[in-house]
Amino acid sequence: MDMVKVGGILLKIIWRSFFLQAWWNFERLQSIGLLYTLLPLLDHLYKNEREKYFQRKKFYEEYFNTNPLFFPIMLGALVKMEMEYAGGKIKEDIISSFKVRMMSTLGAIGDTYGWAGFRPLSAFAGILIGVLISPVAGLIVFVVIYNSFSFFLRIRGFFLGYRYGVEIVDMIGNRNPYRIAKILFTVNSVLSASLFSYLIFWSYVHQFFSFEGVFAGFVIGLFMVIFPGDFVILFYYIILITGDRLWPEILKM
């Protein structure tokens, strides 16, 4: 295969992977996104076999849903496997079982790392820098932390998947991804707790402060733990707004 042409197709696939969720819907989830991403490859591999091309398109139209940040790892492996399939080296069953197995595995890992790990980490680090040093520095820290993780997965992850193909399953299985996640959660807990305690001082410095407010915030926060849901905050608001004359009286009691 022409290496320059393959390189161009791989870059096109990486670019298209940014739009995986553009057609997300409750019936077919990310399947059109996956198909759109793989179309340049299918077009290239089955240029002279139109029937096979439509058959492969049909294959990728099936239900598909995974974490968009970890998707490129799987995508790289799928590209490699599709090339091997076109060369008659592997059977369709292997790609099919790989797809089903990996989308749920990477979905779970991705939700843990991406949404519960790196997104809070970048938010807490960015906000802390933003209130301690300067807002613009906070913005840069936020965007750099989140996107260095995201781009690492999108580019390096894709080429890792492309290099290992189906063996990427063993590679992920042999490591314990949740050990790193645990470290990430610990860092997040420490950062977030420090941030929230600092914000109390920050509100004081910027004249957004009242002792009643901190006290009321704690009470309402405790209520939120007992009765999970944001309606508690809305209820709190109604009490505050309607009872702005009641508050001083209640606190005097």
Binding site: F196, S210, A216, M224, Y236, P248
Partner: peptide
């Protein structure tokens, strides 16, 4: 006063929401 009271409560609310 209501505005100030609520704004000072924000860090505590965020603490419990996380």
């Amino acid at each position: 006063s209501p505005g100030l009271i609520f704004l000072s409560g924000i860090p505590s609310i965020l603490f419990f929401s996380y």
